[in-house]
């Protein structure tokens, strides 16, 4: 394996894990999924086109493998929050515990295609085009899934305005400062 390939694959692992956890809802299953993805990818490394996005290629393999092998077992293995919470060792300081827990629960309730689109675009940093190629659907489909995911998340968290986000005066002040009304 070329050093550049090895580096690119390893470099994608942290983000692959985060994506896998969001699909599986369970860290151990997610790590198995990542391992199987890497084995498949490296066995087929010749089909990777140099110069294209290694990360998107690996995400595509992971997602396909998840859909063919894991999805049917998903209900059995999904745990409600316990294992997932364990990986989240550090609590982002700017958010309250309650809000963060609510957010994760709301995210878990989204339809899987919406959650996946939202994560690819909103967290993994893929463009709509890249996400559409990973999910093998039209760009417009990704856009509408992301929009529906955002709306649904806000509904689940009963957010109508930014004030509902809880007592976070500083953030609100910063946000309000950006908008001159």
């Amino acid at each position: 394996m070329e050093e550049s390939v090895r580096k690119a694959v390893l470099g994608a692992v942290p983000s692959l894990r985060a994506f896998a956890i969001s699909l599986c809802g369970n860290v151990d299953r997610a790590d198995d999924l990542v391992q199987e993805t890497l084995l498949r990818a490296l066995a087929n490394i010749d089909s990777f086109q140099p110069g294209t996005n290694m990360s998107a290629w690996l995400f595509t393999i992971l997602r396909n493998h998840f859909r063919s092998e894991y999805r049917k077992r998903r209900r059995e293995v999904e745990d409600s929050d316990g294992r997932y919470a364990e990986t989240l060792k550090t609590q982002p300081e700017q958010y309250g515990q309650v809000e963060f827990t609510e957010f994760r629960e709301a995210l878990a309730q989204l339809p899987s295609d919406q959650r996946e689109a939202l994560i690819l675009v909103g967290a993994s940093g893929f463009s709509y085009e890249e996400a559409s190629s990973i999910c093998e659907c039209a760009v417009g489909t990704i856009k509408s899934r992301v929009n529906r995911a955002r709306t649904r998340l806000a509904e689940l968290m009963s957010i109508e305005g930014v004030d509902d986000f809880g007592p976070d005066e500083q953030t609100r002040a910063v946000l309000a400062g950006g908008e001159r009304s």
């Binding site: 990986t87 957010f103 909103g122 806000a154």
Partner: peptide
């Protein structure tokens, strides 16, 4: 705000 929450959750694993 939703975007920030999503990213901080994701980045927690990435980190």
């Amino acid at each position: 705000r939703l975007g920030q929450q999503l990213r901080s959750m994701y980045d927690d694993v990435v980190n």
